[in-house]
Write a protein that binds this DNA or RNA. Structure first.
Lengths: 151, 151
DNA sequence: TTGCTCCTCACGTCACGTGAGGTGGC
DNA sequence: TTGCTCCTCACGTCACGTGAGGTGGC
């Protein structure tokens, strides 16, 4: 799996091919996610002209791809999950633009709630996979036992 | 996720609906897996007559469904993976029908190889998911920190 | 005989893959 | 100007979902 540790060739705005390479997807996939509203249209863009992406866009796509591959969710479910993420970006903007500590607390509590939802899904998966690993290991041990008995 | 711990209503042969319920799938999915050769046709069956399944069939479908949900493989890849499983069933039959210890050893060593392939895939996934869990936990801790600083 | 489940087409859908034909920017 | 990548249709594919119309077995 490709990660963001691949340094982008340039720090400036990127085109869709580079973004696809950095996120381990394809241009078609990125356009499709834009089409169904999972990604917002990148910047203002005239019809037929090239899409231009920022480093923040790349990070968002990486997150989506990671969750898509590791949890078994539909893109609609994934959309609802990262809507929370989108909200978090919005939250940070609002967070920085206000000094009201009550509002600060509210925004932070929303963030923890979003993170907890994701953590719960991840932990459930880890448990299921660990159970599978345990079962396979047990089978392996049983076969090994028979092999030893043979020699 | 449904598991085989749901005891089947009867111990005898089952129909497709019951099998679907026990394995957490649908009749359509089971027929589709048969169509693409992922499952062999259950018993000899005249055209248009009902399919009849055994407990062994249910266990095999459970395994397939479990691997399908937890690893992110295509049905073709999954087919190659459980071809090994199919081979194992065949192997057990041959294992019991021969007394040659050299042949026994060969068959057992094939079995360990198949199990190791599956274990490697499972462990890779566990690692990826653990990394994701770590990242999310770190984010959560950072938000918590800010919340404490506020009070 | 009545219900329920099963059967086989066959078209629909989700998440993209894959050309076809044309334009943009270093 | 030449290449390369990008653009927008639009049809194909994988893994099923979802009726349509008909038959099987307790």
């Amino acid at each position: 799996m490709a990660t963001v540790t691949d340094t982008p060739a340039v720090a400036g705005p990127m085109r869709i091919g580079e973004v696809a390479r950095l996120t381990g997807t394809t241009p078609r996939t990125i356009r499709y996610y834009e089409e169904i509203g999972l990604l917002g249209a990148p910047g203002d863009r005239a019809q037929g002209k090239h899409r231009s992406y920022t480093v923040a866009d790349v990070e968002r796509i990486c997150e989506i791809v990671r969750l898509r591959d590791l949890l078994g969710l539909s893109l609609e479910q994934l959309g609802r999950l990262v809507e929370a993420e989108t909200a978090r970006a919005e939250i940070r903007r609002e967070y920085r633009s206000t000094d009201d500590p009550t509002r600060h607390r509210e925004l932070l509590e929303q963030a923890t709630h979003h993170l907890d939802t994701q953590l719960e899904l991840v932990r459930r998966r880890v448990k299921e996979l660990s159970a599978l690993e345990r079962d396979l290991t047990a089978k392996r041990a049983s076969v090994d036992e028979k092999l030893r008995a043979l020699s």
